[in-house]
């Protein structure tokens, strides 16, 4: 097993072998998580700090649970109510935390690149839990693990990513990961929600959902942020649902065994029909949440091994 990275800042820096290493280890943790005794000592004695500069319930809980199951001492810091409000800069916050000798730092920040910046200033391993519109690597990894378990492979699949691509770090990390693993990627959404230069991403772009979903193996829906719904990017919620919301009729265009994914939290009736989200034959949304814990355990375990090797050397 080889995984030589110091931080997990994005999928961009990972090689396909790194991705397979993480997913393989995550598979074993997925099994552990289904046992009555879910405890491991992989991170025993290590301190994990979760620093969330942006609201998150699910991701933070997932990281917290992952750390606790591996025996780490986990601390949550909600940075929205802390010294940042008093004008402290990101670097100062990082230096303050650094002095507390954490081993793993899990960071979410509303600015693209903020986690990279922070990683340059601290001694511990940093995991990006989402930075602005840049990357959300553990989300892409948990999506990959979910796909691999449902489809039996993670290559040569037709994957459609649908919705607000422009503002989505989930989409960026998934495009990078699925591309590295040699899948065909289709992006479907209104042109106002497509990032610029999309033609150079090595993906196929569709504005029509029915056309784009044709024969795909995986349908990934993205959350549409409330603040983008009113007139600025799309005319209205109901028009969006009509044209881009995933319902039975549109899903029928996909391959008969296509799976449906969503990073959550869902807006039922905006980007996805509730009955599809709940359809146990198609929806793997609950599996994604489950795999999230396993993938985060694997990522933190691998980074901790490197930490220990470096301090031993």
């Amino acid at each position: 097993m080889s995984f030589s990275h110091r931080h997990l800042l994005g999928i961009e820096h990972l090689a396909p072998t790194d991705i397979v290493t993480i997913l393989d280890l995550a598979d074993t943790y997925a099994e552990l998580n289904r046992r009555p005794n879910k405890h491991s000592d992989a991170l025993a004695g290590l301190t994990q700090i979760n620093m969330f500069f942006e609201n998150s319930t699910r991701t933070q809980a997932s990281f917290e649970l992952a750390g606790k199951r591996l025996g780490a001492d986990v601390m949550n810091m909600s940075m929205q109510t802390s010294s940042v409000k008093k004008g402290e800069t990101l670097i100062d916050t990082a230096m303050t935390l650094n002095a507390m000798h954490p081993d793993l730092l899990v960071v979410r920040h509303p600015s693209s690149g903020a986690v990279d910046l922070l990683a340059q200033k601290v001694n511990c391993a940093v995991l990006n839990a989402g930075d602005g519109k840049h990357e959300h690597p553990t989300q892409a990894l948990l999506d990959a693990l979910t796909i691999r378990r449902a489809k039996g492979r993670l290559h040569r699949l037709n994957v459609a990513i649908c919705g607000d691509i422009a503002h989505s770090r989930v989409a960026r990390s998934n495009i990078l990961l699925l591309g590295k693993m040699e899948n065909r990627i289709r992006l479907i959404g209104p042109p106002t929600l497509m990032p610029s230069g999309i033609g150079e991403f090595g993906v196929e772009v569709y504005e029509d959902m029915n056309e784009g979903l044709k024969d795909v193996d995986v349908v990934m829906m993205l959350r549409l942020q409330k603040e983008r719904m009113d007139g600025g990017f799309i005319p209205s919620e109901r028009e969006y649902y009509h044209r881009y919301g995933l319902d039975a009729e549109k899903l029928a265009k996909a391959a008969p065994d296509a799976i449906v994914m969503h990073p959550g939290p869902m807006n039922r009736g905006v980007e996805i029909d509730g009955t599809i989200a709940d359809d146990i034959n198609r929806s793997v949304i609950q599996d994604q949440v489950e795999m999230g814990v396993a993938v985060r355990m694997a990522a933190m375990d691998l980074l901790a091994r490197n930490l220990r090797e470096r301090s031993a050397a």
Binding site: G113, K133, R172, G197, E200
Partner: peptide, 15 residues
């Protein structure tokens, strides 16, 4: 500047 680089980096961009 808008384009592939800005999109990959997730930066607000201008045409």
């Amino acid at each position: 500047t808008s384009g592939k680089f800005a999109s990959l980096r997730g930066l607000p961009a201008v045409s």
